[in-house]
Design a protein around this nucleic acid. Sequence first.
DNA 1: GTGGTTTTTGAAAGCGCTTTCAGATAGCCA
DNA 2: TGGCTATCTGAAAGCGCTTTCAAAAACCAC
Lengths: 350, 350
Amino acid sequence: MLDLPGEILEPLARSPVARDVAHRAGVSTATVSRVLNGSAGVRADKREAVMRAAQDLGFVANGAARALSTRRFMAVGAVVPNIENEAFVRVLSSFQERLRQAGYTLVAANAGYDLEDELREATFLLERGVDGLMLVGDIHHPDLHTRIARHGIPMVQTFSLSRERPCVGFDNAASAARAANYLIDLGHRRIGVISGLRKDNDRGGARVTGIAQALAARGLTLAHEHDIEISYGIGGGRDGFRQMLAGGPPPTAIICGTDQIAFGAMIEARARGLDVPGDLSVIGHNDSDFAPFLDPALTTIRIHSAEIGHAAGDHLIARMQGRPVVRLTQIDAELILRASTAPPREQDRG
Amino acid sequence: MLDLPGEILEPLARSPVARDVAHRAGVSTATVSRVLNGSAGVRADKREAVMRAAQDLGFVANGAARALSTRRFMAVGAVVPNIENEAFVRVLSSFQERLRQAGYTLVAANAGYDLEDELREATFLLERGVDGLMLVGDIHHPDLHTRIARHGIPMVQTFSLSRERPCVGFDNAASAARAANYLIDLGHRRIGVISGLRKDNDRGGARVTGIAQALAARGLTLAHEHDIEISYGIGGGRDGFRQMLAGGPPPTAIICGTDQIAFGAMIEARARGLDVPGDLSVIGHNDSDFAPFLDPALTTIRIHSAEIGHAAGDHLIARMQGRPVVRLTQIDAELILRASTAPPREQDRG
DNA sequence: GTGGTTTTTGAAAGCGCTTTCAGATAGCCA
DNA sequence: TGGCTATCTGAAAGCGCTTTCAAAAACCAC
């Protein structure tokens, strides 16, 4: 790091306000406001004059003043568990796309899979005056809902379904169960799960529950030693699979909470001399960019993140504009079959 | 998607304002403001009364009013080329971490590698009243700087160095040159480049320039057919390498604009029966999470994204608080040697 | 007590925009 | 040209907070 002597940069200059424009155009601020907000009923010549004056002065309306006056911030908040997580990034990106089109700004915050932190971040956003809020999942701090209600702004939950609250998502248990059934149909009997942290995470929890139920429905059980919870990431996947092998007979198939975890598990399996999918079938979650390029290409549950983001955006925009909406939008996840799954070896068949 | 009949959710309720709190606590709004902003000089009993009243009413100050009054929005904007790109996500995340600690909100926008779009998004943020702005790279729309100046807010550029403007980054040409020299030292003579789009992208351009110069300095040249520009992503990497093979004798080593591109190129190389690193050495950029886990593990130029984000955040916070700062912070990228690079085969040696 | 501080406090003036409301203009027809 | 609408326009009142300024209260030493 260079060590130049410190210096104070850039002096501040007062930026032009509506009154300056009004003055220059020879009209009142009311007219300036009307022109700049495109409201009808301003004679062409005045309109022109205002436009030119604003242009000349490089006038940009003060957002705070406008927000204070209109009581709309034109901003929407989003609190996601991990802002660096691919799935959430995609949702935020498509969510923002929609909001931007409607003239809204997205303000995103990080909750780190912690209810207290989520409450803190959401409160921070509410103080900012966001006009709407997007959350992930159906488990939140009890105070959060009352705070949102007090602000009287619409909220939408994503990634999972909710009985009570507006949401855009899918049935995590059902989609994970579908993956489990697929494996069972292939003949697998010993099926394991490596999920990310499940605390305060209804998606992760529901997926494991869904798998356990699917197994139970077919007379199988999710062995305790095949039910692993680790931190996210490729490293987590390696560790998780290592742990799984430590306890008794290895599973012939595993379902992982993310594609990263699946990737890690595959690496560990290979390092142990196991062939995927010969000795071990692997299913991931999310259909990350790299999933089709892994060797073998990863079978995964594709979550339609972009659609979820768009739908959540549309939902919130409609509510903020007072239009009617459906409370629950279901965007089903999809099992994408690739090469990492296959029937188990003869001796392991069900 | 479920098709429930539309319904309007949640009626709005007026949220309490400072006057309500003042009334309840039997003081003036001035005192309420003083208490809530922790300024000294309020008797303990009144302070208590205000606190309790605010608590009871669930009062949350209106951010717009506060911003209008203090002329500080306590928000910072960031415009990055691609909000879904791993490197930018990491920077945004660490940048936001710092800002959040200082009480600022981050508002991020997407410029899509287009100067006009960048200008539009930045303008949008300026209208919002952000107190500072982070940009990526040193190439921007000519109007952008005047607009920022007009708003009188500090700006910091990231990822590359700049002669004129405040920046936190590294010398893209030099670090790419280092990678090239490493390959030359290994004995490579035919070295190729697959970069992402270079239009309006000084980082990409500088890297290629740096490589070309490093080659020239050692009496080598970057053959036209070994200089490929593609769109980002794993698919782009595959395409890029395919294109490269189409033109004359294949290179024995390539340097890629991102690890994703490198991954794609490795896949294509393998599909063509080429061994990495036996027949082809590959170097990526960014040191993505998956880089160490590829087979072979990817040699890459690690960009210290988190440090860049932190430094950019610190820089902007200092300027917004009127503290002196250094104009240029250099956070060098680092060549991480792994298994995807090796000397070329005997007959190809230099 | 008293006069002279030193704290506390509240009234009021913004901050810069939107929007209402009434007055000014323009347009139109007879 | 006069009278009556239909348009336009500007003054002014907020929006809800911060902050200045002067007055009120509390404190202190004598």
